[in-house]
Structure formats: C-alpha cells, structure tokens
C-alpha cells in the first residue's frame, strides 16, 4: 500500500498555487491535511499526476471570527477550530460536530475545508455547512467565487470545486440570538463515520416560541439532506412542540441506503430517533442562550 508516483508541487504563495493548478487542470489534486486523500493514494484508488501541496501557504491557516460568522482557512486543522473559544462562542455547532470527526490524532492534521471538499455524505462537516447555509470560497487564477452550501455538494464525494480551483476558505454563519444547535450521531465505533447523524438548529423569538427548526442529516443521501421542520413544530414553546412529528418529517426526507454496517430501514429509524434528540437538545440550548 504505497502511493503511485506523482509530480509534487509545493507552491510558496497562493498565486503560485493557483498557477500550478491552472496548469495541471484535471490532473492536479490539492493536498491539505491529507487524512482522506492519502489513504486513497496508499490504496491506489486515486492516482493524480500532480499533487499540489498547500501546506506551505501559512496565510490559509487563518480562523477568523467575523461579525456574521466564522471564516475558516483551507489549512486550519480540525483540532484548532475545535479548540477555539471565539469560534465556539460564535457558532457552537462547529465544536459539537468536530468532536465527532474521527479521532483526536486525525483532527490534528485533517482540515475543515478539506473535509468539505471531500464531500463525504457520511461526514459531519458538510452537514454543518449545509445546515447553517454557509459557503465555500473557491479561488482560481484570475478570480474567486463563493459557492453556497446548497450548490457546493453535488454528489457523493463530489463538490463544486472544479479543476484549477482551490478552496481557500469556508464561511460558517454565526448562531443567531436565542438559537441553539446540537449534533447527534450513532457510529459503530467511537470515531467511525456515522451510521446516521443529525445536525440541528432551533431558533426562538422573544417570547421563546419556535421560529426556526432545521436539521441536516448525515448518511441519509448522496449529499447532506436538509429538512426544515419549522412548520411542523409550530410557533409554540419548545416544551409543547411535537418533536416526534418533526422527527417523522425528517425521516420522510431521508434516503438512506443499505451497506455492510446497517440496513436502510435501521438508518431511517435512527434518523428519526436522532432528529428528535437533536432538536430537543438544540431547543434546550436555545432556551439557555
């Protein structure tokens, strides 16, 4: 299990990186944390002709809390984002989700943006970005575009990042006032990809009645599956909301599949159980906010 040969590029600046990527096009692959890419290379399931290592682009390591949310640079490692108190204050869902991403040692190296670009529907971060309505900033030689989450995840392990493009950062909107979030999942072993997972956000008005209740499901379809259950919950206090009905509505949106670890029926069941748990948790957080 050794990677196939490739031409290695270690650009020293963003401009240089974009030039290399423009030159390599379809044949180029970006290496950031490498925690998903290198296993694929070691198994020779991927064989890019060019590997563009962005680890020297220190400028991409920034994690900035802006008034509207958190901007995470392409080289920011999971562990760093997870530990950041300002990030947790601005958007607690990031820490809640990152704690569930693989194991601590993997989080020391893996990057948040890399996980988004990898676009595994079983991963936590795509669901977080989708739920929060965040975006990914893609740079190419001569331009930059921000792709909203809804358009970024295009299929299993497929994202909108095209040949010649580098995802330079991701933006996670801040938690609105009187809102709460939660992440619940069931995995076979601690740290494994989830059999099913739910990121939830609940918002309340000044009377502490529900004004927003949304979830994003992990392992429930080819891309993160979003479900807005605000209507099902009704404009009422969390204590009297019909969370079970909301959970059923989430279940109806999910399209899980069978695999060797779980049947589709079980995953659908879990999605319901976890959606109810996550929504209740998020509502509790919102009440405490």
């Amino acid at each position: 299990m050794k990677p196939p040969p490739f031409t290695y590029h270690a650009p020293g600046s963003l401009g240089e990186a974009l030039d290399v990527l423009a030159g390599t096009g379809e044949d180029g692959k970006v290496l950031a944390g490498g925690q998903s890419l290198i296993p694929l290379l070691n198994m020779r399931l991927a064989a890019p002709a060019h590997l563009v290592d962005i680890n020297r682009l220190a400028g991409l390591a920034a994690v900035e809390v802006e008034p509207g949310g958190v901007r995470v640079g392409a080289l920011a490692r999971h562990a760093r984002v997870e530990r950041s108190e300002p990030v947790a204050a601005a958007q607690p869902l990031l820490r809640q989700a990152l704690r569930l991403v693989a194991h601590p040692v993997i989080r020391n190296r893996g990057t948040v943006v890399g996980s988004l670009v990898h676009a595994d529907p079983a991963a936590e971060l795509p669901a977080v970005l989708a739920l929060l309505g965040g975006s990914v900033r893609l740079a190419r030689r001569g331009g930059t575009r921000d792709v909203p989450a809804g358009e970024f995840f295009t299929g299993p392990l497929e994202s909108a990042a095209g040949p010649g493009e580098l995802a330079v950062s991701a933006f996670f909107p801040a938690l609105p006032p009187r809102s709460g979030t939660a992440f619940r999942e069931v995995a076979r072993r601690h740290g494994d990809y989830a059999l099913a997972g739910i990121a939830a956000l609940v918002g309340l008005d000044e009377d502490l009645r529900i004004t927003a209740a949304r979830v994003a499901c992990v392992s429930a379809g080819p891309v993160p599956v979003l479900a807005d259950v605000t209507g099902v919950c009704g404009h009422r206090p969390p204590a009297s909301a019909d969370w079970a009905a909301a959970a059923r509505a989430v279940q109806d949106r999910a399209e899980p599949e069978d695999d060797i670890h779980a049947t589709a029926a079980y995953r659908r069941h879990l999605i319901g159980v976890l959606a109810e748990r996550a929504l209740r948790d998020a509502a509790r957080e919102a009440l405490n906010a």
Binding site: M43, R189, G191, Y193
Partner: peptide, 24 residues
C-alpha cells in the same frame, strides 16, 4: 468478514472491519 455473492471481500480495511478501540 463480509463477502458479496461475487466473492469480493467488502470490508478489507480497518475502516470497515471493526476491531474495537479502547472506547468499545
């Protein structure tokens, strides 16, 4: 060890052959 009907081992990695960690 999960074999499919073609005789392919579907979980030939530590990702999918689930040996317990300390947490299990």
């Amino acid at each position: 060890m999960v074999y499919d009907s073609h005789g392919q081992l579907l979980n030939a990695s530590f990702m999918d052959f689930l040996m317990p960690y300390a947490t299990e």
